[in-house]
Computed example of a mutant assay.
Amino acid sequence: MEKNNKKQTGKRSYGSLFLKKHSMSRRGEKAIYVRKEYHERLSRIVQVIGGGDIPLYAYLDNILKHHFELFSEDIVEDFYKRNKPIL
């Protein structure tokens, strides 16, 4: 299983990708809702692996940043398939 994890994250460790200091100085202006079990799991990851040094909002922002980098071409392709121009 570790082999698949390394493939997804490259040669960097999980912590160096997602549990790093963040440029956001505070939480964003929007609230999001996640399943209770996901919130509990995310909070534990931040507390245990991250040592409590990174806020949950920064961890989530890092996850989303990686997701968009990894899937940007697919997202754009699917967007244009479903949003064809009129002319």
Rank of each mutant, 00 (worst) to 15 (best):
M24S: 15
D78L: 13
Q8V: 05
K84H: 12
M1R: 15
M24T: 11
R26G: 02
Y80P: 06
V76Q: 15
K81V: 01
K20I: 02
G28W: 00
V46M: 08
H22F: 04
S25N: 02
I49H: 05
G28Q: 05
N5C: 12
R12M: 05
P55R: 14
D61L: 02
L64T: 01
I49Q: 11
P55D: 04
I45G: 01
L70F: 06
G10I: 10
H22V: 06
Y80W: 07
F71L: 15
S43V: 03
S25C: 09
F79P: 01
H67F: 08
E29F: 08
A58W: 06
I75D: 10
K36M: 02
E37M: 08
F18Y: 12
G10H: 08
S72H: 03
L64H: 00
Q8F: 11
S23G: 02
L56T: 06
E40P: 05
Y59T: 05
H39P: 03
I63P: 06
S25E: 15
V76S: 04
E29D: 03
L60Q: 10
Y59P: 00
F71Q: 10
E73G: 00
K20N: 05
E77I: 11
L19D: 00
I63L: 12
S23F: 10
R26H: 02
P85F: 00
S16T: 14
I86N: 14
F79V: 09
D74G: 07
R82D: 09
L17G: 08
N4Q: 10
K20R: 12
Y80R: 15
S72K: 10
S13G: 08
G15A: 12
S43T: 14
L42Y: 03
E29K: 04
D78R: 06
P55Y: 02
A58F: 00
E77D: 12
E69Y: 05
